[in-house]
């Protein structure tokens, strides 16, 4: 057999195989909805879709990181609500300027993530339980901060959520795209990313190889919290108001997007780009079903079915790539 050093071409082929399936599913959904609705295949639809996907995108990137280290973060929806409430109160009541309030919002998310990470590694508690606790705590914090009121902010925050004239997408979406690209680079090209994958694959091996996995895991949870804060900035900006009830069930959408993208819940394997495809699939599905006016029960049935089918398809895709290599 000899050395199987991969040529650049093989790498490109592998990449094509990696993303082909996702692109196909996405194209099929878009095609289907375009055929069923006269107004789906329009720039307006895609522009609103892209702008709305920004918050879920950044949160799903954070979730991908957490799942890669074989953890899970159930608190992202609540942390988003907490960050949004802080942002709303800072702007609507304290009269802070938008950049300062947004920074505070992201810091809030980072802090919540840091608590998740610190508790998870310090006492070696499954992150499922720690973040389940944070899910409640952050939600309670959101109600407390916002005094259980929707905080109306208005145009002062519209800047990043509003579509830019000419290109039709918002700065939020472009930031989200940048987060995806940076996330993918961190995961595949940096030592930190390599350690993340290694920890998710087998933490014991990493430890015996002389690397302390704990700070790395803690930082990953912090990143996830920070991205939830960023998602809160995006969502609040888009809606012009901060709702302490925001993001209920968002963690499940994020996990669904990540899993559709082929990231393993067992850790050690994941791709931020594929997560982005997962987000797009969920967003297109939601927009399409809304646009067709499908009623709630059918919407849920269809969304659930698509998630399961996408994950099953991913199992086959992996078998194929495995057989090839």
């Amino acid at each position: 057999m000899g050395e199987l050093r991969p040529s650049r071409r093989a790498a490109i082929q592998r990449m094509a195989a990696e993303y082909a399936g996702m692109t196909l599913v996405l194209a099929a959904l878009v095609g289907l909805f375009s055929a069923m609705s006269d107004h789906f295949f329009t720039t307006a639809t895609f522009s609103t879709l892209a702008n709305r996907a920004a918050d879920l995108t950044v949160i799903a990137v954070g979730m991908t990181f957490v799942l890669v280290v074989a953890g899970i973060d159930l608190s992202v929806g609540s942390v988003l609500a907490l960050g949004g409430s802080v942002l709303g109160v800072a702007m609507a009541q304290w009269g802070w300027p938008m950049p300062a309030a947004a920074a505070l919002c992201i810091v809030t998310g980072l802090a919540a993530g840091a608590v998740n990470g610190a508790i998870t590694v310090a006492w070696a508690i499954p992150s499922f339980i720690v973040t389940l606790g944070m899910l409640e705590i952050a939600r309670g914090g959101a109600y407390l901060v916002a005094n259980e009121r929707t905080q109306y902010i208005g145009d002062a925050i519209a800047g990043i959520g509003a579509p830019l004239a000419g290109i039709g997408v918002s700065p939020a979406f472009m930031i989200a795209l940048a987060v995806v690209i940076i996330g993918q680079i961190v995961l595949t090209r940096t030592v930190f990313g390599r350690y993340m994958i290694a920890i998710g694959t087998n933490e014991q091996v990493v430890r015996l190889s002389g690397i302390d996995p704990r700070p790395i895991k803690a930082i990953v949870f912090m990143i996830c919290g920070g991205l939830a804060g960023l998602g809160a900035v995006f969502q609040t900006s888009r809606l012009g108001a901060a709702d302490p009830n925001a993001g209920i069930g968002l963690e499940l959408s994020a996990i669904a997007a990540v899993v559709i993208g082929g990231t393993s819940l067992m850790g050690g394997r994941g791709s931020v780009i594929n997560t982005f495809f997962g987000v797009l699939i969920i967003a297109v599905l939601e927009a399409g079903l809304n646009q067709l006016g499908v009623q709630e029960p059918a919407k849920r049935l269809i969304t659930g079915a698509v998630i399961v089918v996408a994950v099953v398809a991913d199992v086959y895709r992996q078998k194929l790539t495995r057989a090839r290599s």
């Binding site: 609705s37 789906f40 307006a44 639809t45 609103t48 399409g288 809304n290 646009q291 067709l292």
Partner: peptide, 9 residues
């Protein structure tokens, strides 16, 4: 998100 879809449609 529902309103956005209504507006497109």
């Amino acid at each position: 998100s529902v309103a956005a879809a209504m507006l497109s449609e």
